[in-house]
Design a protein around this nucleic acid. Structure first.
Length: 267
DNA sequence: TTCCAGGCGTATC
DNA sequence: GATACGCATGGA
């Protein structure tokens, strides 16, 4: 990791990183593009404005300390993973090679467990602009993304302002099971992947797809492979006989390049 | 207007 | 285990 202090900001030198491709590729829903190459968002209670210096590999993390860079953002932006090396691995496969070439600046964000789980509960049978709308109303209501504990007194009715439809009752079930201790997200983080999947899916509204997304984006289980309608098209088009060996162990990362690629291919 | 969206619960076989 | 259908809402 290569960064310097510049006044109140941190200047980060980072390859394989593009703000649009990472912050607006459907893995996280509350980064707001405030203008060209400038995004505003947060991890837990750490707000951040991040900008890219005219399309270069230099990023400005506004009003950030070296301490926060080391302890929060290095992890969140997954800076210890060599995405250049991953893309080299993926380039063995023709389709993945194209996907990586199309958007080589994708990184997987290591998000908060609860935020990822609740966000992807909201995401089901929904489109990305509307998911952002619902989460935006939640964040505005709470003045930041609410913790599970913050939501213990909510009911499906009290969440009506979200206009999240049938998903509100699923959020309530997740809050209930987690706040009662029936489900412990920290314990899930320690489980083998199949037990983690099974445990998450005891929450109403959490099926195979939402569980995979929570595990990939909230627990950084890179072997998790979410199959939404877009990735199902990817599989039908290019991988009817299964995924190539070069993605083994990092299926989820490959999936994100493919997801972004096919969505933009069909526009 | 109709179709669809980072799916899942439920009923039925 | 597989398949069919309803579900809230609003973007395109």
């Amino acid at each position: 990791m290569n960064y310097t202090q510049d006044g109140n900001d941190i200047l980060l030198q980072q390859s394989d990183f593009n703000l649009d491709e990472t912050l607006d590729c459907g893995q996280a829903f509350r980064w707001v593009k405030v203008s060209y190459n400038i995004y505003k968002g947060a991890f837990l209670n750490h707000p951040l404005t991040i900008s890219c210096e005219n399309g270069s590999d230099t990023f400005r993390l506004h009003n950030t300390t070296a301490d926060e860079m080391e302890n929060v953002w290095a992890d969140y932006f997954d800076l210890s993973t060599d995405y250049g090396e991953l893309k080299k691995r993926f380039s063995e496969d023709e389709t993945l090679s194209k996907a990586c070439e199309y958007a080589g600046g994708i990184r997987i964000l290591k998000q908060d467990k609860w935020e990822a789980l609740s966000s992807f509960i909201i995401s089901q049978n929904n489109n990305i602009p509307r998911i952002k709308g619902i989460i935006g109303r939640l964040v505005e209501h709470y003045g930041g993304y609410p913790s599970c504990a913050d939501m213990t007194n909510e009911t499906a009715d009290s969440l009506a302002y979200l206009r999240s439809g049938f998903r509100a009752k699923y959020l309530i079930d997740a809050v209930t099971k987690i706040s009662s201790g029936e489900i412990n997200l920290d314990e899930i983080a320690e489980m083998d992947i199949d037990n983690a999947r099974k445990t998450l899916q005891t929450i109403k509204g959490v099926g195979p797809k939402v569980a995979e997304c929570a595990l990939l984006f909230g627990f950084y289980r890179t072997e998790a492979f979410p199959k939404d309608v877009w990735v199902k098209r990817v599989i039908a088009n290019w991988y009817p006989n299964g995924l190539p060996d070069c993605v083994k162990g990092v299926e989820g990362i490959a999936q994100q390049y493919l997801f972004h690629y096919i969505r933009n291919l069909e526009k």
